[in-house]
Design a protein around this nucleic acid. Sequence first.
DNA 1: CTACAATCTCTAGCGACTAGAGAAGCAAGG
DNA 2: CCTTGCTTCTCTAGTCGCTAGAGATTGTAG
Lengths: 154, 154
Amino acid sequence: MSHSVPALHPIGHLAEATGIKVPTIRYYEQIGLLAPPPRSQGNRRLYPAAAIQRLRFIRHARELGFEIDAIRQLLDMADQPDQSCADADSIARRHLADIESKIARLTALGQEVRRMTEDCSQSSVRQCRVIQVLADHGQCLGEHLPESEKINEK
Amino acid sequence: MSHSVPALHPIGHLAEATGIKVPTIRYYEQIGLLAPPPRSQGNRRLYPAAAIQRLRFIRHARELGFEIDAIRQLLDMADQPDQSCADADSIARRHLADIESKIARLTALGQEVRRMTEDCSQSSVRQCRVIQVLADHGQCLGEHLPESEKINEK
DNA sequence: CTACAATCTCTAGCGACTAGAGAAGCAAGG
DNA sequence: CCTTGCTTCTCTAGTCGCTAGAGATTGTAG
């Protein structure tokens, strides 16, 4: 019997093990975030176990809201454990600042929208506070909302 | 002399008056958010003054984070002032709930990312808290972040 | 042998724009 | 009249991070 089987995983297994969908894994390969694995005779991808770790790293970073480009840099750093981590730290700090500015903007939006709905008398459109405020920007309290980097609401 | 000139505005004037860029105005027309205006002999768009109000409404709603589809509905309602405003109100309330869930999620992300950076000893990657936490999901505190509707970080 | 599942590649779509090419219109100056 | 320069026109493609679908192939269990 052979001792220590290499244990290569098909893409479906990787998806299951990491919670990342199959098409997304292929997409990550396409954009160069994940190295192209060797293939079977039938052209299927066969991943070494290390790919699972890498994908988990990616997934966790995505869950924390890091952009793909930042993750690319973070992965590069993770591959060179002897270098300084100042860059990793600054990527994370920048991301944190980004998150905080989004929170600030959303909080301002939220106040404005809440005020609209609270003042609405629930009668006809003519007296609807929601419509009125939207039509006349001057009726805003907060007025100049923090623009930051156009939060891209969604 | 003619009393009451119709005063039609070229697209550039509209852009200036509303703060919405020229290509965006054309885009709004294309997706049916703004009615196609009459044209000059030379095929230029000539807008009636009412278009400025409409675009201001749109801009304000966009600034408050409403989606195009919601704005479409809100505009329809604004055009029928005698109907009930219950729908407008519920659109705004839904949007508010959306904003609040985003804030909740971003707050959770922010805590996690702040912890990473604060714990980072600023030395080598090997001991870098940022990289470590990303590599090992188990080191997260918050653990299961609110998923809500995949905030689409940007 | 026949289902059926898993995988393959490729293309297109999402939302809300933004950027650019290349052509045409328009006013003022020489 | 002609040129210069500005605005506008249409059209296509790119952004981000996937997701969905078509249609072909491979692998496996009964």
